[in-house]
C-alpha cells in the first residue's frame, strides 16, 4: 500500500491564512456571530471574464486549490475530490428565493449552476483542464473527511499518484443567519461564531523535500456516546499500531456547545499530558471547519511549532510526531484523522 504525503496546503479562512509564510502568529479575535473569510484578490487567480459568474465558494476553491498545487509544485493532479456541507449556499438562496418570488418562472441558469454542490470541483477541473476523477462529498461535518478518505483509497489502490483534496463552505446571506437564531434558542448553544472557508491539500504517493506530513488513517463514526468514543479512539489507534502515549498532539473541534462533553472526556481522561489544541474560535463553525483543523495540524508537523492562539493547555513537547484530530457535530458524525511527521 502506498503512503499518502501531504505535499501542498492552502487555506482561506477568517484569519490571514492565505499568506503561506504566516502561521497564526497574529490572530484576529472575532466577537460577532458570523465571520466572513479574508478573501485574496481573486483577479490574481481567475480571469475576470470567467470569474464574473463564479460564486464566492467557487472563487475561494479555485484560489486555494491553485495555492495548494503551487506549494506542491504540481501543475495538474490525477484527481480532484472536494467536500462541502452547504455548497455555494449564497446562490442556492438566490435560486430558491427566485422560484418563490417569480412563481416558478424566469429561473436564470447562473445561480442554478452555482447551487449544485459539485460546482467547485467542476470549476477547478475546468480551470486546470483536468479530465481525471472528479467527485464531491456532501456529508455534513464529515464531508471533508469523506473526501480525504476517498483520496487515501485512490493512492492506496494505485489509481492516482497526486490528488487534490479540498473543502469549501460559504456563509451566504440568509440560511446561516436563520441557523444562528435557532442556535441562540438552545440551552447550551454553539459559542464560536459561524464561519466559512476553503482548504485544499495536495496529497501524493511520493514524498517531497517540502512535504508537510503523512496522512496515516481516517475513521468516520456516525453515532457514539461520550463514553463509547473513548473506546472507538483506542481501537482506531490500535488499528494503526499506536498507543495513547504515542499521540503527541490532540486537535479538537470544540465549539462551546453541550456536545463539547465528547472532547472534555478525551482531554481529561486520555490526553491530559499532551498538548491539546482547538481552532474553531479562529475560523468559526461550519460543516468543513475540520479542514481548518487539518491545515493547523499539517503546519504543526512541518514547522514543529504550536501557535499560542490554538493552545488549550500549556503542555509542550520537544518534538511532534503523531497528531490526532477528533471532530464531531451535535454528538454525531465523529471523525478521527491521524497524521504523522515525515
Amino acid at each position: 500500500m502506498k503512503a499518502c504525503f501531504i505535499n501542498g496546503v492552502a487555506s482561506i479562512s477568517a484569519q490571514a491564512t492565505f499568506n503561506q509564510s504566516c502561521f497564526l502568529e497574529d490572530v484576529i479575535v472575532h466577537n460577532s456571530k458570523t465571520i466572513n473569510a479574508i478573501h485574496p484578490n481573486y483577479k490574481d487567480f481567475i480571469n475576470p471574464i470567467t470569474g464574473r459568474r463564479m460564486a464566492t465558494g467557487v472563487k475561494m476553491g479555485i484560489a486555494a486549490s491553485k495555492l495548494a498545487l503551487d506549494s506542491a509544485q504540481l501543475a495538474c493532479p490525477d484527481a480532484i475530490i472536494t467536500g462541502t456541507g452547504m455548497g455555494c449556499i449564497e446562490d442556492s438562496e438566490k435560486f430558491l428565493n427566485s422560484i418563490i418570488e417569480n412563481d416558478e418562472q424566469y429561473l436564470t441558469p447562473t445561480s442554478f449552476i452555482n447551487s449544485t454542490h459539485n460546482t467547485v470541483a467542476a470549476q477547478i477541473a475546468l480551470t486546470l483542464d483536468c479530465k481525471g476523477y472528479n467527485v464531491s462529498y456532501v456529508h455534513g461535518s464529515v464531508s471533508f473527511e469523506s473526501a480525504l478518505y476517498d483520496a487515501q483509497l485512490l493512492l492506496h489502490e494505485n489509481e492516482a499518484s497526486n490528488v487534490l483534496v479540498g473543502a469549501v463552505d460559504e456563509l451566504g446571506n440568509q440560511f446561516i443567519q436563520d441557523i444562528v437564531i435557532s442556535e441562540e434558542n438552545q440551552s447550551q448553544a454553539i459559542l464560536t461564531p459561524f464561519g466559512e472557508g476553503a482548504h485544499f491539500f495536495t496529497i501524493s504517493s511520493s514524498r517531497q523535500d517540502g512535504s508537510y506530513c503523512e496522512l496515516k488513517a481516517i475513521q468516520i463514526i456516525n453515532i457514539a456516546t461520550p463514553d463509547s468514543i473513548q473506546e472507538n479512539l483506542k481501537e482506531f489507534l490500535n488499528q494503526n499500531r499506536l498507543l495513547l502515549s504515542d499521540v503527541d498532539v490532540i486537535v479538537l473541534g470544540c465549539n462551546g456547545d453541550e456536545f463539547d462533553c465528547y472532547y472534555h472526556n478525551l482531554q481529561r481522561l486520555l490526553f491530559d499530558t499532551i498538548p491539546q489544541i482547538h481552532y474553531k474560535h479562529l475560523c468559526g463553525e461550519f460543516f468543513t471547519a475540520s479542514a481548518f483543523g487539518f491545515w493547523v495540524a499539517t503546519n504543526i508537523l512541518k514547522k514543529q511549532y504550536i501557535p499560542n492562539s490554538v493552545k488549550l493547555n500549556n503542555v509542550e513537547k520537544s518534538r511532534y510526531k503523531n497528531v490526532l484530530l477528533y471532530n464531531q457535530f451535535k454528538g454525531r458524525q465523529h471523525s478521527f484523522t491521524l497524521l504523522t511527521s515525515c
Binding site: I49, R53, N102, Q105, Y106, L107, T108, P109, T110, I113
Partner: peptide, 17 residues
C-alpha cells in the same frame, strides 16, 4: 462584451421577465 451561451440564456429570461 464577450458574452457566451449562458449569458444568452440570462438575456432570454430578462426579455421574458
Amino acid at each position: 462584451l464577450g458574452l457566451d451561451s449562458i449569458d444568452a440564456l440570462e438575456l432570454i429570461v430578462l426579455l421574458d421577465k
